[in-house]
Design a binder for these strands. Structure first.
Length: 751
DNA sequence: TTCGGAACCCTTTTT
DNA sequence: GGGTTCCGAA
């Protein structure tokens, strides 16, 4: 094939990235620079021009969505041969490897994958065995400590050594937990997410010949979002790529926002020293945003020191200024956002609202629904995290994997069948004393007088059902087994009985939806086994079930927004202490990450960007005075337009809360820059948002209660202008806020 | 076993 | 403020 055909339509830099197919390559891909396009073309180039066999290429991403899109687009370019390529997430690539060779580490090919909830359940069991106090060592604390260790590539022995060396008593306890937890996982024939990667690395370390075989297989390795890789992922990739060094990493150091999950920005920053012979390509032309938005974003990110350095530019027009709205409180901020959405010619689906923390979403949700504007909140409790779904999945896991004790214990009394705490304890003790798995203990119920009465017969019944379902696996599809389980345990009836009618309804629907989802999945599979389905659920935990409608306003955290784009974006809550968050103050690295987060949020916008902050915010039940975020200060005033100038200071809290003068606000009022951290200046400071000169001679001064013939009762929030031009800013009790010309308003004074 | 109320926590969460 | 979790009482 003619190389020119492959690179046709790419800009010169993109071509560089595609054509440089041999040796290590770092592609610094700015936001909206056509990254995926480059990756896809690069793969096509390798196969079509360099005649690399597809199965010699491994492409790794972080999300299923990214993997899917990449796979789809490659297939569209080169056809079905793409099928034999490994394009998948870190986790599913590793799961695949471990299913093939996990026996060398003591796992079967059917191992269960434990998500957070199951990790916690197992950790509680471990804590109990070690007699740990749940207050001193909450399961969640242990979970994240162990998770961190795995991300760092630290095994239990190394962890114990670390703990001893640092004389940290708490860590020494965690070390014990970590060790026992790993043993328990093995007994349950289960792995957690961290294990998938870490144990793959361990497998390769322990069995060099296996590593060699994969090195032989994968001649070309490509990693997307390289800035988000953690230590083990880094090790994995680099060990595989070592002999041939055909490693292409794509990423953007300016969009590294997952350090708290173990991502190491240094991986991308140090790539050039890891591979001195490497080439670097910078994709800086942006095809997404207006020049104004980019200029603003560039200014913000320029405040970071630890970065490769990159300036996005575009041929797009300059577009609108960035709108800046400084509200009095979050209700005010919210109504600004909603007003802009409801008065726009755009469709709801063109808008997105991004916030730093999930807690901020509620007010927007309420406001939008009150106005009847369709919206979707991305995030929150996922489908597969709902209790009823997890219960059914636990059943399926038990059917699939005999040794999975965590899932078995979960379902013992679901639906309630009279197996209480004491019975479970008896079983646990017996299992422990006889070194049996939980399932083996259940098998001995006949022979041993372990448990008596109702619990005994219930357990025997459950055991027989499980045995039957396991036999069914031969001729039944997973969906049929699942349906059988639901029917035979009386799950629907139990849900009815134990929930209020509304909840019972949704839970029932969820169960139906699960069956539906399994069937959909089966339709796409050649060989739909239960084990395969369970892996799919564990790793591809996507919410394709909640159909993403294009016609709704999208609400999500900025973290979730990475990789997406919208015509018009509202970035809300830009306040010191919230964004950047308070916790980032002490550490410069954390502050830099917050700044990157801001940059990510801003660069999602195609045409119009709004940024807003509140003067007063209720947070965790407390009302706090806030100042605008330093990130706002970093944007040149020429790029912004204030959207709240006409507004007056109607909010008593502002005058009476005794808030210290906020010179940062005055920066926007007077058009003079000031440092966010500057000390308080002497003398009076203009109050933010206050109408410049209140006409004290107005018959209806600020705060005056009035009655309007049509709008009813209200309060004068502000007065503007004078004489015939006098306008009153009034908040009506029932009709919201209006700006009225005094001479026409025909107001009655009240009280 | 199930409930209800007190106590607790509180960034972000690709897999 | 609110959601979750945990413990004790019925």
């Amino acid at each position: 094939m003619n190389p020119d055909d492959i690179v046709a339509g790419l800009n010169p830099v993109q071509r560089e990235a595609v054509v440089n197919s041999q040796g290590p390559l770092l592609i610094l891909a700015g936001a909206g620079s056509g990254k995926t396009r480059v990756i896809v073309h690069r793969i096509a180039y390798l196969i079509m021009v360099r005649e690399v066999a597809p199965q010699e290429i491994m492409a790794v991403t972080f999300t299923n969505k990214a993997a899917q899109e990449m796979r789809e687009r490659v297939r569209a370019m080169i056809g079905p041969v793409a099928q034999s390529m490994w394009i998948s997430t870190f986790h599913s690539s590793c799961a695949r490897i471990l299913r093939n060779h996990g026996d060398r580490l003591g796992f079967s090919a059917k191992f269960s994958i434990y998500a957070d909830k199951e990790q916690i359940a197992l950790l509680k069991e471990v804590s109990r065995k070690l007699n740990l106090s749940a207050t001193m060592f909450p399961a969640e604390y242990l979970r994240s400590a162990i998770d961190n260790a795995k991300n760092r590539g630290v095994d239990p022995d190394e962890y114990a050594l670390e703990a001893r060396q640092t004389h940290n008593p708490k860590s020494q306890v965690v070390a014990k937990v970590y060790k026992l937890y790993q043993e328990s996982l093995k007994e349950n024939d289960a792995l957690d997410f961290g294990d998938l990667i870490f144990l793959t690395v361990a497998l390769f370390n322990k069995h060099p010949e296996l590593l060699e075989s994969y090195r032989e297989r994968f001649h070309y390795i490509l990693v997307d979002e390289y800035q988000d890789t953690n230590e083990v992922q880094y090790r994995l990739i680099n060990m595989l790529a070592e002999p041939r060094r055909n490693l292409c990493v794509v990423g953007d150091d300016d969009q590294s926002i997952y350090s708290w999950r173990g991502a190491q920005i240094k991986n991308i920053l140090d790539f050039e020293s890891d591979y001195p012979e490497s080439k670097v390509v910078r994709l800086e032309e942006n095809y997404r945003s207006t020049a104004t938005i980019l200029a603003a974003a560039n200014q913000v990110i320029a405040g970071n020191r630890k970065r490769k350095g990159k300036d996005l530019w575009t041929k797009n027009c300059s577009g609108d200024l960035v709108s800046l709205f400084l509200g009095s409180n979050e209700a005010d901020e919210c109504s600004y956002v909603i007003k802009r959405i409801s008065t726009s010619v755009r469709e709801p689906g063109d808008f997105a609202i991004f916030y730093r923390t999930n807690a901020q979403s509620r007010i927007f949700e309420e406001g939008l629904s009150r106005r009847g504007i369709p919206y979707i909140i991305v995030g929150g409790t996922k489908f597969y995290d709902r209790a009823e779904i997890r219960n059914l999945l636990a059943y399926l896991k038990v059917v699939n994997n005999e040794r999975d004790g965590v899932s078995l214990q979960r379902i013992l009394n679901i639906p309630t069948r009279g197996v209480g705490k004491t019975s479970v304890e008896h079983l646990q003790v017996y299992a422990e004393e006889n070194r049996l798995s939980f399932w083996e203990t259940m098998e001995r119920l006949d022979a041993e007088a372990l448990i008596r009465g109702k619990a005994r017969s219930a357990l025997l019944g459950l055991r027989d059902m499980i045995l039957q379902w396991r036999r069914d696996q031969g001729e039944c599809k997973p969906s049929q087994i699942c349906a059988r389980i639901i029917a035979e345990i009386g799950f629907a009836e139990w849900l009815q009985k134990n929930n209020d009618p509304v909840q019972a309804q949704t839970r029932g629907e969820n169960v139906a939806e699960l069956l539906n989802a399994i069937e959909l999945w089966e339709d796409e599979q050649e060989n739909p086994t239960l084990a395969a389905y369970l892996e799919n659920v564990a790793l591809i935990n996507d919410d394709c079930l909640s159909v993403e409608e294009a016609s709704r306003v999208t609400l999500m955290t900025i973290h979730r927004a990475k990789g997406l784009e919208f015509d018009e974006v509202f970035l809300v809550g830009l306040e010191e202490g919230l964004f950047p968050g308070k916790r980032s103050y002490e550490k410069p690295e954390l502050l830099e990450e917050e700044r990157r987060l801001c940059y990510v949020g801003m660069t999602r916008a195609r045409e119009k960007l709004h940024m807003s902050a509140c003067r007063i915010r209720r947070l965790y039940g407390q009302t706090v005075d806030s100042r605008p975020s330093r990130f706002l200060m970093e944007i040149p005033l020429e790029l912004m337009r204030r959207e709240d100038r006409h507004r007056s200071s109607i909010f008593k809290s502002e005058a009476s809360a005794g808030a210290p003068p906020k010179e940062t606000f005055s920066r926007f009022q007077r058009g003079v820059g000031s440092q966010p951290t500057s000390r308080r200046k002497p003398g009076p400071t203009k109050k933010f948002g206050l109408t410049k000169s209140i006409d004290q001679s107005s018959p209806f001064p600020q705060g005056c209660r009035v009655e309007h013939a049509v709008f009813g009762p209200g309060v004068v929030a502000g007065v503007k202008g004078s004489g015939d031009e006098t306008k009153l800013d009034i908040i009506f009790r029932d009709r919201g806020r209006k700006l009225l010309l005094l001479k026409f308003a025909n107001l009655q004074k009240l009280g």
